[in-house]
Design a binder for these strands. Structure first.
Lengths: 339, 339
DNA sequence: TTGAAAGCGCTAACAT
DNA sequence: ATGTTAGCGCTTTCAA
């Protein structure tokens, strides 16, 4: 019932090897026989069986993608970048959500390797020792996208989270703020948040400002988390006048909570975000935000993976992408610097 | 180098068949030999090769998922629903973006079938005749998620777009509006938009209201598209006092465009949306919106697919899920009805 | 330029 | 309860 390479060979009066050659675009086929074979393929509607091919060639032209949660815009954006480049190099993608659970990440890694993927792109906010070890032992290359393995044993693509955050905090300090809050998702959760926090503290210290632990709050990385954080911070004695938010949703939550209480942004408080999703323009005031190039992180990760798959030379396996800060309306522009 | 079922068999002094049996959890294995085999598997770190298994068994336990664009929240949400249920039934997913291009959809279908997926979940806003035909000829089951094939030849999961829109427009009419705008993405593009438009017209007619083509505008289905639409509609002689938006982004664009011109929502104009993503709560005023249950559409589609894969009986292959309207602040609550 | 044949690693009868 | 064996549909030497 299903037509195989054997059927084509028989109908075309050639061997399976020849059919295989034309299907795979080998040059060593006489044009006339190629034409003949192609005709039979068309007539029989032959479709090569990739599974059989994978077994014989030990290549599946599919790569695994493990991300925390595809319904989260951050990861979806990166996934799109991964997929676009994968398509460009003729790979397909097996996509799975880990919900950032080590156990799931581990088992996903295992099933994907079982499925003989040619490589894996992994996004994980917590590259635990165990995870790292199993990834190191992987028979196929794995690249980390937007995820940091401090040992740098695995290839990765990131931006400089420390530097980016430092610059963001600096903007707030330059605008005269002394009480700057740091809001992020769960710290134990997000290794990147660790770098952000370090940068926050360093920037404060460099400016001779006190680091007040009461101003550091880790909520759910969500809109409601942002609202909660604002409320929490406005119950303390000396509330902050500026906020660094680890994501756009957090920032919008903070802004709305403030506005709901009659506080004006950026007149009364200023807010800077870290993400710059399309949401950043969909609030009033529009968000000033560190630009996290998710799509590029995904795309470059996949490109890096293809280099390993093609055995191309890789100069630096730990890529740092440039970032910038998009200045909009949630942080005032300093008039002095303007003139 | 890679350890195969044969290696395990040899080490455990049993046949390949026995190893296969314990790997696949067959009951016909003596506990003691099962234990012995399991130990060897562990010691050798044997991992079954799913590709070989797929070739031999003609089942890959992977399903294809074709969606327009994973970076679009609508589809990402649905994809999460699909993946969750797939995981529950031990399927993996090959995910690919079609960008809603027929050509890509067709070629994706082809490569996925080539990869021997066991089934496919397809999201397409335009099930063209050609597409429909190739899907009908698929050797494996295909279910349409949130996509309408008017012939009903293919299994599908949807809500009643007509009914939902009718009710939304009715709310606006009941609030006294005579000039109601209909904003959607490109009509030629979105078959669902067709139903929405029909419902819009019907609701107007049923209320004895004139259908003014000038009030029907199809922009990009985006925030900017919404802003554009508002501007366009406010250049005509008799601008609308209420808006039906085909998506949350569109609605927010409309609202912000209006607010930027000093117009108040819902005091001056009212807006109802169709989607209810998390964005709906992240604007002021919060969006009144028809709830499009994307996650459920994805989940139910995948569940439906598993029924075909398990040869379970399927009573109705065209599932219509319930919807509701979430009432928030972009539409006034009628005080008369309230009391 | 083409063909023959040996696998790839596993499942699934069929035997025993 | 366990073993034997014939494929699954293709790629890949190796020969010719």
């Amino acid at each position: 019932m299903t037509v195989t390479i054997y059927d084509v060979a028989r109908e075309a009066n050639v061997s399976m090897a020849t059919v295989s050659r034309v299907v795979n675009g080998s040059q060593n086929v006489k044009p006339s026989t190629r034409k003949k074979v192609l005709e039979v393929i068309e007539r029989l509607e032959y479709r090569p069986n990739a599974v059989a091919r994978g077994l014989a060639s030990k290549k599946t032209t599919t790569v695994g993608v493990i991300i925390p949660d595809i319904s989260n815009n951050i990861y979806a954006e990166a996934a799109r970048g991964i997929e676009d480049i994968a398509t460009m190099y003729r790979y397909n993608i097996i996509l799975a959500n880990s919900d950032q659970k080590e156990e799931k990440e581990l088992s996903l890694l295992d099933t994907m390797l079982g499925k003989q993927v040619d490589g894996i792109v992994m996004m994980s906010d917590a590259v635990t020792p165990k995870l790292l070890q199993t990834m190191e032992n992987s028979p196929v290359p794995i690249v980390l996208a937007g995820s940091i393995d401090e040992s740098k044993k695995l290839p990765s693509v990131n931006i400089d989270y420390f530097q980016a955050t430092y610059e963001a905090i600096k903007m707030l300090i330059d605008n005269g703020h002394k009480r700057i809050a740091f809001i992020s998702g769960p710290l134990s959760y997000t290794i990147n948040a660790k770098y952000k926090l370090e940068a926050y503290k360093k920037a404060l210290q460099d400016a001779g400002l006190e680091v007040d632990e009461a101003l550091i709050v880790a909520e759910d990385d969500s809109y409601d988390g942002g609202m909660e954080a604002w409320k929490e911070l406005n119950e303390i004695e000396n509330p902050p006048t500026a906020y660094f938010a680890g994501s756009d949703e957090l920032a919008i939550g903070i802004i709305h909570a403030a506005q709901d209480h009659g506080i004006k942004v950026p007149e009364d408080i200023e807010v800077i975000s870290f993400e710059n999703s399309k949401l950043a323009r969909m609030v009033r005031p529009q968000l000033t935000s560190v630009v996290l190039p998710l799509y590029e992180i995904g795309a470059v990760s996949m490109r890096l993976l293809t280099k390993f798959l093609n055995k191309e030379e890789v100069k630096d396996q730990n890529v740092i992408l440039p970032y910038r800060i998009e200045k909009r309306d949630s942080v005032k522009v300093k008039s002095m610097k303007n003139k």
